[in-house]
Design a protein around this nucleic acid. Structure first.
Lengths: 334, 334
DNA sequence: CTGAAAGCGCTTACAG
DNA sequence: CTGAAAGCGCTTACAG
């Protein structure tokens, strides 16, 4: 049988009140001698207050729910790492939920998490939600690319600026036929990245070609399929991929079609995954700080849990354009 | 204020006993009319029994702890996905812990998890542990490559056979100077893979060269560094990498040293990550079923939780040798 | 067919 | 300086 506070009280010859107070650092009033006796009994019996009994009173579950679209996604796993790194320092633990990009799953998970009285939730989601109804009763942070409008707790990335910079770079390098891999299917509408692409072409007086755009899932395979369709159809000399994973897929598509990167096709990603600098050739990409995003989300959530009256700050993360070997200037090429 | 069973009882004009019994499907004895009234009150008020109060009695936390060395590792994130996929069907949730390969962190996490009365734990670890003391009080499954000897619940992979097959393949292709990237530094001693390498050379009457072996962390960067050292030092024509991530690092090292894969160097990995078939060239590797391993671990753990008296089965997973573009026969080469 | 009462393992006013 | 007692929100023998 598990050892209880009663046992400790008996062993040290005091009341449960005394044990409880001492254990919760409210025991100033007790004599040193008593404290010592109690602590000794606690140590020796490896006593730990029952988590459930304690929580029934304190309501401090020290648990945070985290929902991500895909744990195996290299971007999100890095975000998780950031969240974990912060929360573990605070003795919090994470209930991890894999939503498989499904809005319905997300709702289920939120319900379950709230049932378990989590202290807060971090929701990484591509979906717009009726947050009022589902999450209202708990502190939360959204990692959602700004899809849901709020006044506080917005964690944003300069997607537009980052994307714009990459397109401008290609144009400056002489590219005129620039394609884009995007995702419009409800999820991950990379609207900002796409808008930046359109605007940048316009600012440079280049014509926008609808057929230079291709749509697909934001995965390696999705990128592969989309790039294949796009590259078979057009003679673009450069391609902005929705993210690094799609860029990896693009490498394969190009290879199969006999296109050399960067000689025949310049490729740019978005994210800067660890793997990206190891690709062959190393991927030129727009870096966003995944770990830091997670870490910040956790920090803000923690603050919000402990000072609910305080507003959660907004924060916009900078991107960094990193030129590596997958892009080149266009010269003899048409 | 949160709504309690008392409120529901009051609203439907019965006792809390009645509400509790009906909600827990022990309400056969109550009249249909009563049941209906209670259920209606429950629905209308969106009542959910308090998680902590309920658990204080039932001790069914429906929560499993999962500890992995690195959430961003592509192999482990796939294992997590498998675990999650099974447990979510059973209405269980996962407390995820990232141990950063540290044995000390693992122990801390185990303690914390047990404090929270998890129903069980899945520990993916490269470390040998004094399991008796730390985990004894809870059902658990180890994903540890068989480092800790147990009579039941061993989830093993045919590492030896898989590795042997890959080395034999290289030898059959004419390679004589075959290197290996391994990890001996306490973690992930890939002993089986290494042993298979040694034995296979021997069986084929090839001399074992100590300088053909290099050691490093099981990451992309680790593989890069190790491969660089090894390739600068020797003139091997083929390299067995400890895992796919190390193989990815090897690609970069080879590239920087001006070695073409597979013309100058055949490369073989271990894992078959999703990304591996998209590398340039696609990676020849020994596939192991990461998702299935996780899924099976969760299945066994669940069984063990619900039938503690039953023995947990052992299971050995097959590997599959997948030939892709990173290997070739050695011909004109010396 | 139904409910009063005890109990799970804690914490916290309150009294001394 | 210390402890008896009430209470958190449930479940479950037990009595009727």
């Amino acid at each position: 049988m598990k050892i209880t506070i009663k046992d400790i009280a008996e062993i040290s010859g005091v009341s449960t009140t005394t044990v409880s107070q001492i254990l919760n650092n409210k025991g100033q009033r007790f004599s040193e001698e008593t404290k010592r006796r109690v602590m000794k009994a606690v140590e020796e019996n490896d006593y730990n207050p029952d988590y459930f009994a304690k929580n029934m009173i304190n309501r401090e579950s020290k648990t945070v729910g985290m929902i991500v679209p895909d744990v195996t996604d290299l971007f999100f796993s890095k975000v998780i790492e950031g969240v974990e790194a912060y929360l573990t320092k605070k003795d919090y633990m994470i209930l991890l939920c894999n939503s498989n990009h499904s809005n319905e799953m997300e709702k289920n998970y939120i319900k379950q998490l709230l049932n378990r009285s989590v202290a807060g939730v971090i929701l990484a989601s591509p979906n717009a939600m009726e947050l009022e109804t589902s999450l209202k009763s708990s502190p939360y942070i959204l990692i959602d690319r700004g899809i849901n409008t709020r006044v506080e707790g917005n964690l944003l990335v300069k997607e537009y600026e980052g994307s714009y910079e990459s397109v401008q770079y290609l144009i400056d390098a002489g590219h005129k036929k620039i394609g884009m891999l995007t995702n419009e299917s409800g999820y991950y509408e990379m609207t900002d990245r796409y808008r930046a692409y359109v605007q940048c072409l316009k600012d440079n007086k280049l014509i926008y070609h609808g057929e230079y755009i291709e749509d697909g899932p934001v995965t390696i395979e999705g990128g592969y399929e989309a790039a294949k369709r796009l590259l078979e159809r057009t003679d673009i000399t450069a391609l902005c991929c929705g993210n690094d994973q799609m860029a990896i897929g693009t490498y394969r598509a190009a290879y199969e079609l006999g296109l050399k990167i960067p000689e025949d096709l310049s490729v740019i990603g978005f994210d800067d995954l660890e793997i990206s600098s190891y690709l062959n050739p190393p991927l030129t990409t727009v870096a966003q700080p995944a770990f830091e995003i997670g870490y910040t989300a956790a920090t803000y959530l923690f603050q919000s849990i402990n000072s609910p009256e305080q507003k959660i700050p907004n924060r916009t993360f900078e991107t960094e354009f990193i030129v590596r070997g997958s892009t080149t200037t266009v010269d003899k090429k048409k």
